[in-house]
Design a protein around this nucleic acid. Sequence first.
DNA 1: TGTTAGCACTCGAGTGACTTGAGTGCTAAT
DNA 2: ATTAGCACTCAAGTCACTCGAGTGCTAACA
Lengths: 343, 343
Amino acid sequence: MLTERQLLILQVIIDEFIETAHPVGSRAISKKGTIPYSAATIRNEMADLEEMGFLEKTHSSSGRIPSELGYRYYVDHLIAPNPLHKDVKIIKSIIEEGFYEFEQIVQMSAEILSELTNYTSIILGPELMETKLKQLQIVTLSPQTAVAILITDTGHVEHRSFKVPTVINPSDMEKMVNILNDRLTGVPIVRLNEIFHHEVAQLMKMYIRDYDRSYEYLQEIFVYDHPVKLYISGKSNILMQPEFNDVGKIRTFFTMMENENEVVNLLRNSQHGIKVTIGNENEVEAIKDLSLITASYQLNNDQMGTIALIGPTRMEYRKVISLLDGLSMEMTNALYKWYQLDE
Amino acid sequence: MLTERQLLILQVIIDEFIETAHPVGSRAISKKGTIPYSAATIRNEMADLEEMGFLEKTHSSSGRIPSELGYRYYVDHLIAPNPLHKDVKIIKSIIEEGFYEFEQIVQMSAEILSELTNYTSIILGPELMETKLKQLQIVTLSPQTAVAILITDTGHVEHRSFKVPTVINPSDMEKMVNILNDRLTGVPIVRLNEIFHHEVAQLMKMYIRDYDRSYEYLQEIFVYDHPVKLYISGKSNILMQPEFNDVGKIRTFFTMMENENEVVNLLRNSQHGIKVTIGNENEVEAIKDLSLITASYQLNNDQMGTIALIGPTRMEYRKVISLLDGLSMEMTNALYKWYQLDE
DNA sequence: TGTTAGCACTCGAGTGACTTGAGTGCTAAT
DNA sequence: ATTAGCACTCAAGTCACTCGAGTGCTAACA
């Protein structure tokens, strides 16, 4: 176990390193006055801390920097139970100020978050698994084309253009929309395609002339291919961090960030509450020397989405954790209000 | 005026430098065999070309690199009248393969473009100035909220949520939608707000109870705040270019690219046809050492949007110009088809 | 008169020796 | 248990040196 003094020294070193990004030497700590011991004493303790794996040296005669284990310990034990970060209030007031759609709130939150931290923020939109079709509309643009509009009970709107089968005339179309609305309203949008195939097909055959020939045009309306939406902000923000002084590193990071799937996977396995993943704890190669912090926001205990920050392992964990904690609460609230509308 | 031989040498140097990014020496040119003169002769010509401003040295005893003036001359006189790039066919077939919405086509084009060139591609969506409202729909989500959906004659769909004024009941709402559709269909969407204020207001007062109190909630439906849409692809692509080996440069570039307004301004003053802007010819500070190539795509001679590529001044102008030329034609075609639908 | 060979010169880039200073580890004294 | 002292280490900077690609110029050549 660590002694009181070792804890203190570890904390001071990490705090200092997080602030300056320079290795911390024993003399500097001693001079600072937080710890009333001489440099030599501190040196001994540092040697012990290094042996235990909490600290590292960049070379044999350099000052110490925290190891990943050190950060881990710091995050798990040395951060005071998060007092809400003052900036959360700012976010809260911004969210409540206007009548924003959920997407706007998310977008703004991502921007604020990256601005406040100088890291890259990522927000995974709410999982739409549970949202249901509220209404389907089809607007004809020309004899050959039309746009189908799906409105969900959460106010989410999707649209796709499609070719109108030549065999369908306007009155058929009207009948069709009626049937579809009748049968599909209330169906979870992820199941639309399935229900359309199995339950609606027969009905269509009865009422719509030549339905078989129309079928292939219509089916794509219900293919739901936007499982989640990503909001990323401050990608270039992170370039201000001194650890991004290497072009190769920047390349791998940005290449990873352009791959939406990879980013989604990064966040997907996040759990309830806040989760900190430091350096090599990350599974994804490209961020094995970065830290990822995720927080979930939710509705009625169903997990809905994830907020995350990516930054160097030398991250301001204290600030970031309390910010994310607060923001996820605010977003949960905002989302809750949205759903309330529906009752 | 430049002699035949000087032209040839200039061309060889620029071609070589574009390929390798290393200063080109006289001996290397001579050895290559394209020009049947000795290194010394070529040296003399190079000195002349430098005096005229087409070439530069990185230091007093280095090989030559093209100056911006050199690139200018190269682009204006040394590039053969663009034969259509073979890859344009690929793009064409992709576009025609499925029934894509215009936005999808644009998105794909941007991606293909950046992939084929390793530069950053930017496409400015079609100016929607001329598009007209086809239909307005309002879907009530709850007693207090609704979502308004605007469908344009081009199949573009916009939506915004708004608070339903408490004094409006469902039948009022229905009446309102009817009035709005009656009066606003066919109105250019940029003028919706204006017409709504001036011509529809009176009508509303007559038919809708307590219209004055509803007014403030409704007006925001018609505020049109998406003048143009940007599609960017391959931002990290450009990091592969050797000129981006400097973190400071990367920073300025990415910071610029995150500012949507600045990017839009970059492309806005583009003209009919292809325009090449080299290095300092650019007005925007952040790309004064990069080149920008823009091409416009259009509908019925009204300019609609812009396709652009940003890369180092050492750009593969020949390839890029023929690619953009071809792609802008394809997009013009695609857009034309879209509008055809409407007649 | 245009072309070429030859040669001195320049400068970036790489290399090795040296210095400096921050920081360590260890030992002996307090 | 703590601290002062001292020898040691290493990154980073500086300087002198070398190497080689490339130039500019001059004189010889066709």
